[in-house]
Amino acid sequence: MRAGVAAAAGLALVALSACSGQGARLGLPEAASAEAPNVGNLWVGAWIASFVVGGIVWGLIGWAVIRYRRKDGDAPAPRQTTYHLPLELLYTLVPFLIVGVLFFYTVKAQDAMISQTDEPDVVVNVVGQKWSWTFSYMEEDNPDIGADAHTVGTLESIPDLYLPVDKTVRFNLNSADVIHSFWVPSFYFKMDVIPGQENSFDVTPNRLGTYDGKCAELCGEYHALMLFKVHIVTEEEYEAYVRDLAENGNEGARLVQDTIQNALPSTETDEEHS
């Protein structure tokens, strides 16, 4: 038993020491939003719990192998324990305790991720269509921009999504056809994009840079091409980008119905012939 506890303590120490460096992410990409640590901490905590449980199990297995190994004579027979109520209760309650603790922190992280502010700084309407994305920047009431603007992606042209750093962004999600999923891995969050049902969530980008975005729901033949680039920039760069979109023929918000009519007309023609 001491060997199991020692192994668990050693693994936990290694996991905890990793929190001071890049290893703290344990496979997660670098976080790019203020909300991401809610999921990041849950991820690391779940791994630490797994290391502890695994260490105890591996330690007990190792102890049994060493203690009851065959030597010169017959292997010593371990003491048989039957109808041991305290031990059976331990076997039953400990897994429930582990699952309960993980469930509590999962719900806590989920509530933090889907919490929304009353007045977001920026609103972006997102439409998923076969097989790309439409982003509409709702900035008509912003005196520094004065107009809504949109950009539409195609199979040949991956769309860009520009977001101002340290500003709370409200994403309103809708689909023009089938279920998609809006996912920016560095935000540690994704949400389904469902036809006829608007989903929304808030995020506060807090790290300048360019990040990958994609569809996380198998949505059809060209699902793998439903990519986009997220550019987290200064507020001045964001405003200049949206103004440039509006001044170059992309003024106004693209509605779901417009997206259906204008995105991939060749696909619609093929469906009519079929």
Rank of each mutant, 00 (worst) to 15 (best):
D166G: 09
N199S: 09
T117K: 10
A6G: 09
Q261P: 00
P195Y: 03
L85F: 12
T259A: 04
Q197T: 10
G100W: 02
F51A: 15
E239K: 15
N199D: 05
K71F: 08
A64T: 07
E236H: 08
G209H: 09
R79P: 00
P159K: 11
R170W: 13
Q116T: 14
K130N: 15
A149N: 07
V123F: 01
E139C: 04
A77W: 01
K214L: 15
R70F: 05
G153D: 08
E88Y: 01
R254D: 04
N206E: 10
I48D: 01
M1K: 11
L93T: 06
G213V: 12
V178P: 00
V101K: 02
E272K: 11
D118C: 01
S17H: 02
G4H: 08
N262R: 06
V122T: 10
D141H: 05
A3K: 15
T134D: 05
H150I: 01
G249M: 08
M1W: 05
L225E: 14
L60N: 09
P37W: 12
A109E: 06
G59L: 10
R207I: 07
L163G: 04
L16H: 01
F51S: 09
N206R: 13
T106E: 01
E119D: 14
L28R: 11
N248V: 03
Q261G: 05
P37N: 09
F103T: 15
L218P: 03
V53E: 04
